[in-house]
């Protein structure tokens, strides 16, 4: 009897110890500490890999930029005029252009002479630029309260940009002249929005290239319609019978074509929406247009417009002699 009791006790103790051990082991397995370490290291690995990826991308960009000194040059003609949002518009436009290799920015002011604001801005921008000015004749100028579609804006300034290009084209020689053979001209208004891919699309323009433009003509987008690699018509919401129903932001022209067709200018007296056609009809026919942006299926430029800022408070305070400091450039 005593022997039996002792043996039973031993077995019971053995069982309990084993059970506790098992529970301890299970708890160890279930502890989140390990999981946290594991997850943390995963997160750190991910962020580390992302960092490395970013560095590699920057490295690629640097090497690409240094390599791209032999790609065709893009001349961008931007008409601009003094207004409250001018500096802001030029600022974000310059941020886009800073990314584009071999870009030459031709800024043409609608002013009797070059203003200090634009001169200072351009010299600080870090871009290669030419600063011009050309005043719009009074009879062609939009008056206060005129709707913005009444008269074409910027025609004189774009023509001034073209005049400068033709003068420049006639004065260069040798390598520079050879480079001009491949260069491209683009008319970029100062309030539109441009993706970087757009400039790579237009860089290899042989005559005149075209692409869709977003948010223009009362439509989400306007675009040339392409069949078998050729432009056959235009998807547009306004005056589709125009010879070239396309926005100013929707085409680029080979500089060679501009230099050899000296009569090609923008007609400041053209009726609404025909400014682009008045220039292009001297240069190409529809058959010769080169569709870009994935055969005109991608929107890479948007015809955005900035609201006129409200200045009610400013006017009220001016009457009280407490207007904002004119020396602070805005």
């Amino acid at each position: 009897m005593r022997m039996r009791l002792k043996l039973k006790t031993v077995f019971v103790l053995y069982f309990m110890v084993s059970l506790f051990g098992l529970l301890y082991a299970l708890m160890q397995l279930g502890q989140r500490c390990d999981c946290r370490d594991h997850e943390q290291s995963k997160d750190q690995q991910i962020s580390q890999l992302k960092g490395e990826l970013q560095k590699l991308q920057e490295h690629i960009k640097t090497s690409e930029l240094s390599k791209k000194t032999d790609v065709p040059r893009i001349y961008v003609i931007t008409p601009t005029y003094a207004r409250l949002v001018q500096k802001a518009e030029l600022t974000r436009l310059s941020h886009t252009f800073l990314h584009v290799p071999q870009l030459h920015w031709i800024v043409v002011e609608d002013a009797p002479q070059q203003t200090q604001l634009v001169s200072d801005f351009l010299s600080a921008s870090g871009l290669t630029y030419t600063h011009l000015n050309k005043l719009t004749p009074k009879e062609r100028k939009l008056q206060e309260g005129d709707p913005n579609w009444l008269k074409p804006r910027g025609a004189e300034q774009r023509n001034e940009g073209l005049r400068w290009l033709r003068w420049m084209g006639s004065t260069v020689h040798g390598k520079e002249a050879a480079a001009l053979e491949e260069a491209v001209v683009y008319f970029a208004d100062d309030d539109n929005t441009y993706s970087l891919q757009l400039f790579e699309e237009m860089r290899y323009t042989y005559r005149v290239s075209v692409w869709p433009v977003g948010l223009v003509g009362g439509m989400k987008f306007e675009r040339p319609v392409v069949e078998d690699g050729k432009v056959v018509r235009f998807h547009t919401g306004w005056r589709p019978n125009r010879p070239f129903p396309i926005d100013m932001a929707g085409f680029a022209v080979s500089l060679r074509l501009v230099l050899t067709n000296k009569e090609a200018l923008f007609d400041g007296d053209a009726q609404m929406g025909f400014l682009e056609s008045s220039f292009l009809q001297h240069l190409v026919t529809m058959d010769d247009l080169e569709p870009k942006a994935d055969l005109c299926t991608k929107v890479l430029v948007w015809h955005t417009r900035t609201e006129k800022p409200k200045m009610k408070r400013e006017e009220a305070l001016l009457k009280q002699g407490m207007g904002s400091d004119p020396d602070v450039e805005v």
Partner: peptide, 11 residues
């Protein structure tokens, strides 16, 4: 700056 609301009258 603020961007004007888009006119989609011809959509």
């Amino acid at each position: 700056t603020r961007t004007e609301k888009v006119n989609l009258g011809n959509e």
